[in-house]
Write a protein that binds this DNA or RNA. Structure first.
Length: 648
RNA sequence: GCCCAUGUAGCUCAGUCGGCAGAGCACAUCCUUGGUAAGGAUGAGGUCACCGGUUCGAUCCCGGUCAUGGGCUCCA
């Protein structure tokens, strides 16, 4: 991380500037020298008193201001750099497509985009041409010039240019004064700041083109959005493009096919998953682990049906608040039934089958419950966004005085489960009251505070997500960071004081009176389908031993080794190790390659040597190619069982 | 749902400017019995997503449907 700090200190009537660069001090005799130094250090913009400004603003920095130089290393610097690149993109488009109208072109997390209104959608060839023109504009190194004007003046200017989108933007603005930036004859409405000149941009790549609604509103015009990215050096850009390649290689849809894990079948329907044997065994392993741990944590397991009467969903409020994600009801003997989008009403029904005492609480019901939700066809995506999926759901009924403790337990439990799957970094969000909600203000406050308190107690860092809570209560969401650093939303912990009320859920208090428990909904992995997809990408299909569909391949050198090899494979299977046989009429090198391609963690090779000594000295070949051993058969079994047990 | 692109063998992809469709891998059979990431030969496999139109003739051109992919949150 590189940052430059400088402070103006008036001395002897003149101005001397003190530069702090990486905690080292530099002296500058005036703004001109300061600017030079900043440029030398790679700064292309500054922050003055917290406000981002053009580098040239250094000339007019008021005395006693704190000034920070921005380079590509900082988040703000990246955004400015890429925003400038977006303007160069717009300029290039203007030159090649003079009729194009300009919408917006912000920097985004990994790059930038610009939305255009053009008669013909851009083609990949167009993109190449535009990128080429951008490089030419960069080479010219023309300066970005800032100009300030009244909003009325800007409105007139852009109206005259026929820039209807800019006019609309200006109309929706409050500011009296606005700014434009001009570079090489191309002017764009922009708050800035920008890099000093186009030549500051060292590496650009246009990535894709897609449709995007004006202002994200599907009722408005579909514009053409060009995505691109920019980096401080060609080397960094190359690294980023390699990361994109790596992401492509890990794509769970591709690995799912290659490793024969799952498929989606057009005839069956979009967004519905077929788990193949290799995927199913992974799911079984995950489910077994999940159930065992829930039993240890004093949860009770449930099973519930896939559909229920529509009245139930009306009572639960789902029909009012969640209908757009539910399928149309089906008629059964004149009564309407609905395929379930959630499991909660069933768990409540189980709770209500008997009178509950305060002594019994908290009651924790857990279910791997399969639900169906309507997702628009355009948003479906492999295992990540589907229409039928299994939630690792649980509902906890607790007394008010137990909520804090219970949330802490859930947090611990969640992190333990996620950790087991190799996720060690998380982004945690606390979502507060949304626009559409039920329940009282007071209830919302109590439960939001309880969630907050639990997070603080655990010392977990989190961000507040205002208005993102569910209609029935606030929630904690946990996003896991995968091995490529990407964040995936999995776990959710939601407080609910709505359903107990609606369903009249009660328990008998210590004073003999009826009281209402508070319900907590929670899912750790979220959806098994999606979690599986995340795991595939996280491990790049190379699962740890405990999850691997095939744990050991037993390979033979020649036909005469088959009988003994079969004994070895059987012995492994008897001990619960997933061992497969490859006795094909192929050379050993070929069989090893087959195992490696299928990402089987271990191979055992059986030849004359092994048959002769009766398996007293077996070597294991790891999928990396490394050989370990020799082991006796029983030592090998112990080794594998141990590694499976520790889930590594 | 909307915009754009794509849909050819199990997989990855050629190809036909309209004339009965091709490769590599995978699969099958045979030869080879080979010690740590691809031995050889032969063969089978396709209603060119589906429906309709134009045409003497459509996998190719046109229209529709379905599916898949990129996006539709990041505010001058």
């Amino acid at each position: 991380m590189f940052r430059t700090c400088l402070k103006q200190v008036p001395i002897n009537g003149g101005i001397e500037i003190r530069l702090l660069i990486d905690d080292k001090e530099f002296q500058a005799a005036g703004p001109a020298e300061a600017e030079k130094l900043l440029k030398q250090k790679g700064a292309f913009a500054i922050i003055v008193n917290g406000e981002p400004k053009d580098l040239s603003f250094i000339q007019s920095v008021p005395a006693d201001s704190t000034v920070q130089g921005l380079t590509f290393e900082s988040k703000e610097g990246k955004a400015i750099y890429r925003h400038s690149t977006a303007h160069i993109l717009a300029h290039a488009v203007k030159e090649l497509f003079p009729d194009a109208k300009f919408a917006i072109g912000p920097a985004i997390e990994e790059g930038f985009y610009y939305d255009f209104d053009v008669h013909q959608p851009f083609t990949p060839e167009n993109l190449e041409a535009i990128e080429k023109r951008m490089l030419e504009l960069i080479k010219k190194n023309t300066p970005f010039k800032r100009k300030e004007m009244s909003r009325a003046e800007a409105l007139e200017t852009f109206f005259r240019l026929g820039e209807t989108y800019k006019v609309e933007l200006l109309e929706s603005m409050q500011d009296e004064t606005v700014s434009t930036y001009e570079e090489g004859g191309f002017t764009d409405l922009c708050r800035g700041p920008h890099v000093p000149a186009t030549g500051a941009i060292k590496a650009v790549k246009l990535l894709s083109v897609a449709g995007a609604y004006w202002r994200g509103d599907e009722k408005r015009k579909m514009l053409q959005r060009i995505y691109g990215t920019a980096f401080a050096s060609g080397k960094d850009l190359k690294k980023y493009l390699e990361l994109l390649e790596e992401i492509k290689k890990r794509d769970h849809r591709r690995l799912g096919r290659e490793l024969d894990l799952f498929s989606i079948n057009e005839e069956i329907g979009a967004g519905l998953i077929l788990w193949h044997p290799n995927g199913a065994i992974i799911r079984k392993t995950i489910e077994d682990f999940w159930r065992d741990e829930h039993m240890k944590a004093d949860y009770k397991l449930l099973y519930s049906p896939h559909m229920a009467r529509l009245d139930l969903w009306k009572k639960s409020g789902h029909w009012d608040f969640y209908r757009e994600n539910m399928y149309s009801p089906m008629e059964v003997e004149g009564m309407e039934y609905e395929i379930k989008p959630m499991n909660c009403p069933f768990h409540i029904a189980v709770y209500k089958t008997g009178l509950k005492s305060y002594r019994e609480l908290p009651i924790r019901y857990a279910e791997l419950g399969t639900v169906y939700r309507f997702e628009r066809s355009g948003v479906l995506h492999g295992l990540m966004r589907v229409r039928g999926f299994t939630q690792d759901d649980a509902h906890i009924f607790a007394r008010e005085d137990q909520i804090g403790e219970e949330i802490k337990k859930i947090l611990d439990f969640t992190l333990f489960i996620l950790n087991t799957f190799g996720f060690e970094n998380y982004d945690i969000y606390l979502s507060t009251k949304p626009e559409k909600y039920v329940g009282t203000e007071e209830n919302w406050k109590i439960s939001t505070d309880a969630l907050k308190a639990a997070l603080d107690y655990k010392g977990l860092k989190y961000e507040i997500d205002p208005g993102e809570g569910v209609f029935y209560g606030p929630k904690i969401d946990i996003k896991v960071k995968d091995s490529l650093g990407r964040a995936w939303q999995c776990s959710t912990i939601q407080v609910d004081f709505n359903n107990p009320e609606r369903f009249d859920v009660t328990y008998r208090g210590d004073d003999g009176k009826e009281r209402q428990p508070i319900m907590i909904h929670r899912a750790l992995m979220g959806s098994l389908e999606r979690f599986f997809g995340i795991l595939i990408e996280h491990y790049a299909g190379s699962f740890p031993l405990w999850l691997s569909p095939v744990q050991v391949d037993v390979l033979t050198i020649a036909e005469r080794h088959i009988d003994f090899a079969r004994e070895v494979a059987c012995a492994l299977r008897q001990e619960g190790v997933r061992a497969e046989e490859n006795f094909e009429n192929e050379k050993i090198g070929y069989k090893i390659r087959q195992s490696a391609m299928r990402k089987v963690p271990y191979s055992v090779i059986i030849g004359d040597k092994e048959v002769e000594d009766g398996g007293a000295a077996l070597s294991l070949r790891k999928k990396s190619g490394e050989a370990i051993g020799p082991f006796t058969l029983s030592a090998l079994i112990d080794l594998l069982k141990q590694e499976i047990k520790i889930r590594r």
